[in-house]
């Protein structure tokens, strides 16, 4: 996907791989990055370069289903963790709601993108997931990192790579 061609407010159907991570997983990822080179150094559980993180903690997977309900959670809680991940090459974030001015500027700086998934539509989004695989932090339960393969996952471009925000009028 050519990130730079995406324009804020544009609707797209995303197909590809996304990694779920929310509050606690972000804290751990950033701890790992900050701890790099230390004696008890552990590598990141997956290479962030060119990847998308989805702010989501799905419900448990019901029998005969790929995944449970899996809508986006509020992105702004992850604002403070964004920079180190972008530095590691993260390409995009998917969530719901507004971001801070700082995140807007970081997205512009690193030529990344922020996508909005339909908020409160976890059942609808579950139908767009083809596979789910545990990647890291199993002990976090629904907050663990999962690799999801999605097809025609509906999203709206929240902040494009030029830093233009579709919620401009609602932001300070």
């Amino acid at each position: 996907m050519n990130i730079k061609s995406l324009k804020s407010g544009q609707e797209i159907l995303f197909s590809g791989v996304i990694y779920t991570a929310r509050d606690q997983a972000h804290k751990r990822l950033v701890d790992i990055i900050n701890n790099a080179g230390a004696q008890n150094f552990v590598p990141l559980p997956f290479d962030l370069k060119g990847q998308f993180i989805y702010y989501c903690g799905p419900t448990a997977t019901p029998k005969n289903k790929v995944i449970g309900s899996c809508g986006p959670t509020t992105s702004s809680r992850m604002d403070e963790f964004v920079e180190p991940l972008l530095k590691k090459g993260l390409l995009g974030m998917i969530g719901k709601g507004r971001r801070s001015k700082k995140v807007r500027n970081l997205i512009k700086k690193y030529k990344a993108v922020y996508l909005l998934a339909p908020a409160g539509c976890g059942a609808l989004l579950a139908k767009k997931v083809l596979s789910k695989k545990l990647v890291a932090f199993k002990d976090l339960g629904p907050e663990a990192i999962y690799r999801l393969e999605v097809k025609d996952f509906p999203v709206i471009v929240g902040i494009d790579s030029l830093g233009k925000d579709t919620y401009e009028d609602l932001c300070d």
């Binding site: 019901p62 449970g68 976890g122 609808l124 579950a126 509906p154």
Partner: peptide, 27 residues
């Protein structure tokens, strides 16, 4: 776009009921 969003919400409710999936993952 507002209509689109409302359409998603109604479609989500339909899927949740039919498939016995939580309306929202935040239960």
């Amino acid at each position: 776009r507002a209509r689109k969003a409302l359409g998603w919400i109604l479609e989500n409710a339909r899927i949740a009921e039919k498939e016995k999936l939580a309306i929202c993952q935040d239960t």
